[in-house]
Simulated scan of single mutants.
Amino acid sequence: MRTVSITEPFDHPALFYRDEQEYLAGTVPFVRDALDAGDPVAVAVPGPNLALIRDELGERAAEVHLLDMTRAGRNPGRIIPRVLRAFADSHPGRRARIIGEPIWAGRTEAEYPACVQHEALINLAFQGREATILCPYDTTRLDASVLADAYVTHPTVIESGTQADSSAYAPEALVARYNQPLSTPLGAVSMVYTAGTLPAVRQQATRWAADLGLGEHRLDDFELAVAELTTNSVVHAGGEGTLRIWAEDQHVICEVHDSGLLDDPLAGRRLPPREQRGGRGLLLVNVVADLVRVHSTPALGTTTHVYFHR
Rank of each mutant, 00 (worst) to 15 (best):
A114Y: 00
A62Y: 06
H118V: 11
W246A: 10
T304S: 08
R107L: 08
Q117N: 13
G77D: 00
G213S: 11
P113S: 09
V175P: 00
A209V: 06
T27N: 09
V201T: 08
L50E: 06
G106N: 03
C135P: 01
A200R: 05
V83I: 12
P92D: 07
R60V: 07
V116C: 09
P48R: 04
T153L: 12
Q163K: 06
V292W: 07
H309Q: 14
T27F: 04
V306Q: 05
R74H: 14
T194L: 04
V235I: 10
D89L: 09
L66P: 03
R202C: 11
L174C: 07
G73I: 12
A120V: 12
V43A: 04
D211S: 15
L52S: 13
R82P: 00
E130N: 09
H12Q: 10
E109H: 14
L198V: 07
W246I: 04
V45N: 02
F126G: 04
R269E: 11
H91L: 05
A110G: 06
A267K: 01
R85D: 09
S167I: 13
Y137W: 11
V64W: 02
Y17Q: 11
R129H: 14
P136M: 03
R269W: 04
T140C: 14
L174M: 13
V28L: 08
V4T: 09
W208S: 00
V43M: 00
G268M: 07
H251G: 03
A96Y: 01
Y23A: 07
A289H: 01
A210C: 13
F308T: 01
H65N: 12
S166L: 04
A164N: 13
P102A: 05
V45E: 01
A105K: 06
R269F: 04
R71T: 15
F30I: 06
L124K: 14
